[in-house]
Simulated scan of single mutants.
Amino acid sequence: MKPGIGQYTILGVLAAGFLYPIWWAISSSFKPPNDIITDPLTLSGPTLHNYEAMFADVPIGTGFANTALVLVVKGAMTMLFCPLAGYAFAKFSFPGKNVLFGVVLLTLMLPTLVLIIPLLLEMSALGWVNTYQALILPGSIDAFSIFWMRQTIAAIPGELIDAGRVDGSSELGIFFRVVLPVIRPGLAALAVLTTMNVYNDFVWPVVAVNDTEHQTLQVVLSTLAQNITGNRIGSDFTTVWGELLAAGSVAMVPLLVIFVVLQRHFINGILAGSVKG
């Protein structure tokens, strides 16, 4: 049954409600600082003052570079090792398989804050505090990604994998030549989720790194947010809000682009990952 006018109307209203905050933040970043506070709901003459002041006050380029480095390396590790682990849990039988997979799932119940102190002590013992290793390695192979890949790969017919074995392919050859092409939607969904998690991660980077050289984008933005309380000499409340909206708008663009480009694969991957294996 095709959607009716009423359904399109409801979806349109919901879409407008979700998109309005994004539109307001971006449009307000081009307004004079005083107008953001005194007249927040109307448009005024556009100005680049907020962006110029933000780039002058905040090392946002360093934050972008560090976040990009962490995202590329950490994302590559997630996209390689988690599908391999999911493949093993989905298509192989070995002693203790169910117990081990249950332990992996149990780790999903642990709050992130519970793990921070043990992880920080481990990084300190290894001498990795204030290093890229501390930002990249913890969480690069996580339980949710393994579970996601296991569910996605479990939906692949066993006959397809057996055909690869009959043709003489090794298990790694089957994984790279047979499994990966089939689960591309699931991989795209995992890529989007991993990008969002790494890009928006704040708690662990602010704990593991306390120097400006290794700060990620979210930590850099938090230092600007602190200026709202008057930490920066010569700043006023309205000026800082303008810079904060400008920085938030700049930080928002990469995620919007990634989601728009991969949205079809993301939705297909969500559906594929929901199939019970």
Rank of each mutant, 00 (worst) to 15 (best):
M1A: 15
I5D: 01
Y8W: 03
L11G: 00
L11S: 11
V13T: 03
V13Q: 00
L14T: 04
L19A: 14
L19F: 03
Y20N: 03
P21L: 13
W24K: 02
A25N: 04
S27D: 02
S28R: 00
F30T: 01
P33K: 04
N34M: 14
N34I: 09
I37M: 08
T42Q: 12
L43N: 09
S44H: 13
G45Y: 04
L48R: 04
N50C: 11
D57Q: 12
P59F: 04
P59G: 06
G61C: 03
T62K: 12
G63V: 02
G63M: 00
T67V: 02
T67A: 09
V70Q: 06
L71A: 14
V73A: 15
G75Y: 05
A76F: 15
M77T: 15
T78S: 15
G86P: 10
Y87K: 12
A90M: 03
F94A: 13
P95E: 00
G96E: 09
N98L: 06
V99T: 15
V104F: 07
L106E: 00
L106Q: 04
T107F: 03
L108I: 03
P111K: 05
P111N: 01
L115M: 10
P118V: 08
L121M: 15
E122I: 09
L126Q: 08
V129L: 15
A134R: 07
A134M: 11
P138G: 11
P138Y: 11
A143T: 08
F147P: 09
R150I: 06
Q151Y: 02
Q151A: 13
I153D: 14
A154G: 15
A155S: 06
I156C: 07
E159K: 14
E159F: 03
I161S: 12
D167R: 15
G168Q: 14
S169V: 12
S169T: 10
L172H: 02
L172C: 10
I174Y: 03
F175Y: 12
V179Y: 12
P181I: 10
P181Y: 09
P181C: 13
R184D: 11
G186T: 01
L187C: 09
A188S: 13
A189R: 05
A189D: 07
T194E: 11
T194M: 10
T195G: 08
N200E: 14
D201S: 11
F202A: 08
V206H: 00
V206P: 01
V209R: 09
V209E: 11
D211I: 07
T212S: 11
T212C: 05
T212I: 12
V219C: 00
V220A: 05
S222R: 08
L224D: 12
A225D: 06
I228T: 13
R232I: 07
S235F: 04
D236C: 08
F237W: 06
F237Y: 02
L255D: 06
L256I: 15
F259Q: 06
R264T: 07
L271T: 15
S274I: 05
G277R: 14
G277E: 08
